[in-house]
Amino acid sequence: MSKIIEGLKYSESHEWVKVEGNVAVIGVTDYAQAEMGDITYVDMPDVDDEVTAGEEFGALESVKAASDLYSPVSGKVVAVNEELDDAPEKVNEDAFENWIIKVEMSDASELDALMDAAAYKAQIGE
């Protein structure tokens, strides 16, 4: 049974969003990291790149698989978690503590399309 945190927003493609003012902090869910297995690399965009809701912004890699990451919101990347460059295993250790990117949202109403914890829990069938 994977961990789900109340109060966050969730996407169908297993990203979570924590809203801090106009900035969306984005990571992947505990369910996603468990499905992926040992993560060997987190492919992240550069600061100042534009991301679009529903479009890919990076990828998680394991030894035998790559899984794209999709941005839940649109906007400009204001920070990437550089710690993951050298320690991708942190996502396995705690997927909620180890965010991946922070996005300055251009349209906060996009958050309304995301799921709450209960709906996400239902999606993953737990």
Binding site: D38, T40, Y41, E61, S62, V63, P88, E89
Partner: peptide
């Protein structure tokens, strides 16, 4: 000649 290797360590 070898047992199964640690491929995760090789990639990380």
């Amino acid at each position: 000649p070898i047992k199964r290797p640690d491929e995760t360590a090789a990639a990380r």
